[in-house]
Design a protein around this nucleic acid. Structure first.
Lengths: 208, 208
DNA sequence: AAAAAAGAGAACAAAAAGAGAACAAAAAAA
DNA sequence: TTTTTTTGTTCTCTTTTTGTTCTCTTTTTT
């Protein structure tokens, strides 16, 4: 597969950076106006190249409802820049803030994996005895399963997310804090959704 | 393979140091402008030499899509670039392995400072209660002084180096471990040389 | 002085980008 | 419904950009 030309990359970047400026996925004419181009046909060539590269797709099948980025596009972009998306903070007792990427963070290779990863900032002391402190950053590998003993980002009852050790048996899932002042929580498997597994941790000692 | 001429090395260095200033792999014309050259043809000769040397390659076959550094050249970039030197490990009771750079590690900006920094890997449990575990990496800002309460790399009697909390008073220097099973050490100021101060910490949970 | 390296500038073919027209199907409006 | 507008698609033609090659001149090195 061919690599994007400069103009194609330019248009893709524009699409990526201006998604939220379009109330609905933009049509070719709309894009022409936004890109200050006079010819729909010319733009069409570029869009076809982006579709070919898997970065863009028609929004509603073959209907004329505009185009949008593919799910793959964002990850590819992240991979190309090798920075990880920093998606917000996780505090015991609150749902994780929706996975909108706030910014990007360059992370050492040793703290990543070859699968999609993202970075969260930890709020609270529930994992203090595991050496994970309030304010630390954690690198999370995005996957829906975990082995016992791993530290996971778990979404409980679709409402609150926490960072805990996990122990799974036939009928129950145990979420264990690393803090003697807190107690373990026991759930049925269907109450808990694993959102990712801890694979890295970082701390800054800068006072600023 | 021929050796690079001075000008060729100059152009390669420019390419290496400015690759992030180009939004897209640069064309010959763009490079001419950036290098303040008037002739594409002249530049072409140099680029061909770099391609011949394996340092540079067309971005997409022979299409008009610019040139980029080869994978091999990127290694040179890491060495010269913004990554921090990884200089070895520090274990309580042993001198720090001489500050020869073993490799480089890309470290998040938040864990660096604007002063010279390097990375060490921690051996031992002397700082376990401060959340610094065996095998963790620490980012050290290289400076010969510290404030009380900071965690420092201290060289004792020119023979052994440790990572400890520091408390300095008029006549003595206290080095405090963060481990209830260990005891604090007391020295005279001239016995202790501060080699750097902890400003960042990282941990990998990958099994591998 | 001779040789090597670097540079300017012209010329050319191919690639890429763009303009604009035409058309059929879908969506919106009457 | 019918009509009008919008949208995606395809096409040809023109302009711009890019990589490449060439000759000739200038600068640097030996």
């Amino acid at each position: 597969m061919d690599v994007l030309t400069r103009r194609q990359r330019e248009i893709f970047n524009f699409l990526r950076d201006n998604q939220e400026n379009f109330t609905y996925p933009p049509s070719l004419d709309e894009l022409c106006a936004a890109l200050d181009m006079a010819s729909r046909g010319s733009l069409h060539k570029h869009i076809m190249a982006l579709i070919n590269a898997g970065l863009v797709e028609p929004f509603n099948g073959n209907k004329q409802t505009g185009i949008r980025l593919t799910a793959q596009a964002r990850l590819e972009d992240v991979a190309a820049g090798q920075d990880l998306p920093f998606v917000g903070s996780i505090a015991a007792g609150k749902p994780i803030e929706a996975l909108e990427t706030l910014s990007y963070m360059s992370v050492p290779d040793a703290l990543k994996s070859d699968k999609p990863c993202y970075v969260l900032q930890v709020k609270g002391d529930s994992m203090i005895e595991a050496g994970i402190f309030d304010g630390d950053w954690v690198v999370i590998e995005q996957r829906p399963y975990a082995r016992n003993g791993e530290i996971v980002v778990a979404l409980i009852e679709n409402t609150e997310a926490t960072l805990k050790y996990i122990e799974q048996t036939a009928g129950q899932v145990l979420l264990l804090p690393a803090n003697a002042t807190m107690t373990a929580l026991s759930y049925r498997p269907e109450q808990v959704e694993i959102q990712g597994v801890l694979i890295g941790q970082m701390r800054s000692y800068r006072s600023h």
